[in-house]
Design a protein around this nucleic acid. Sequence first.
DNA 1: GTGGTCTAGACCACC
DNA 2: GTGGTCTAGACCACC
Lengths: 125, 125, 125, 125
Amino acid sequence: MDFDLARPIYQQIIDDFKKQMIRGELRKGERIPSQREYAEKARINPNTVQRAYREMENMRMVETLRGQGTYVNISEEDLQMLRKEMARALLRNFVLEMRALGFDDEETFIMLQAEQTGGEGDNKK
Amino acid sequence: MDFDLARPIYQQIIDDFKKQMIRGELRKGERIPSQREYAEKARINPNTVQRAYREMENMRMVETLRGQGTYVNISEEDLQMLRKEMARALLRNFVLEMRALGFDDEETFIMLQAEQTGGEGDNKK
Amino acid sequence: MDFDLARPIYQQIIDDFKKQMIRGELRKGERIPSQREYAEKARINPNTVQRAYREMENMRMVETLRGQGTYVNISEEDLQMLRKEMARALLRNFVLEMRALGFDDEETFIMLQAEQTGGEGDNKK
Amino acid sequence: MDFDLARPIYQQIIDDFKKQMIRGELRKGERIPSQREYAEKARINPNTVQRAYREMENMRMVETLRGQGTYVNISEEDLQMLRKEMARALLRNFVLEMRALGFDDEETFIMLQAEQTGGEGDNKK
DNA sequence: GTGGTCTAGACCACC
DNA sequence: GTGGTCTAGACCACC
């Protein structure tokens, strides 16, 4: 048996930005906090923030302008792809976990319905 | 922003046993590995294993016979409750995460269907 | 023949807190010493204190606020139950020990009266 | 706060013999096990047994005949004194503990009656 | 062999 | 400062 480790912080930072972008809380062209600012608020090492920002730069999620700051730089198209990817991962994991508990897809399906309506009311667009 | 920590090892051990019991791989009366055995195989400290075993003892999931070993001790009833609880947690988390990505329940519903049939074939009982 | 072992320290710690609560010396909402503080005063290992505190947490005798401390959290009702339980255990043990010495209940009864009045004066409410 | 240690084994041995004598299970003139025998059965160090036997010898509870064994040697009178002493200690401790739980003597008295009749039937001579 | 208790101490998040 | 997790290892009773 192997144990799950904590997801690396720099990846958690990236995930957090991804979610904000997907939710529309962070739009193309907007400035994200400076690395120093972020590190202080989150009380983590600036190097960790730098790594997250660098990877987002590589993925073209953001653009860094030397001496000016870092700006969101993601196309609507890429955003949609990202959104679908993240949903797909959630779905896949969910289905597998339910099966591991011995629920067949039919049951999972019914339970999802119950959870959605029971949870906290409707959530229609 | 707060970061996710690793789930404590002793809890991961408990979760693992829970899953094994739910799947019927570990039945009432069966002996689980000794604390030392487990610690050596998993290469973790015996104290960590002991904490997991002690908590399972407190939850009445297992029964410990000094000098003899630790035995599964969970009623069919409790097992069913456990199974439902774990499923409920999965469902709840899944629904919330999908909403956080901006999918409404209808969409989530449809995507689940797609995932189930597309994933790896049917999974009917 | 088996010999009596020392009652584990962590249980003695719990018993001590129970008694303080029952006597009203420690009331709901009050803070108990930090784990380190207790360990230093009693000159025992912090882990031993932590085990006692954790078990009290599990029993809902106290509530732990991370980074803040540990607070008494027991209902008046539970306190009364605890008090009766502890008295019952004392009584049961006392009766059995007296019988083991060959005193019948009548004799025990009379001796108790003598002890109470003779011991250190009255103790009426 | 100080913690209770285990009562020394040699004292536990002595207590055990005292109780046996008081109950009449061990009478004057009877032979008790050899030190070696006792140590093996109880799986304790022979030195510990020797200390217990030596102290009983000093108290004139037993008499040791070199090369022959150890024999109970206690007068009926001393036995009665011993019995009363042990009862007195039990009583004293019981009364104090009940008071510490906040029960007044009247209450203790009534609870004792309930315990005696409720416990396991009558125990009249 | 088995589990139970305890010490010593590291490292961490949260306040 | 607070509590939480984990390692390393001693020593013990019980089988």
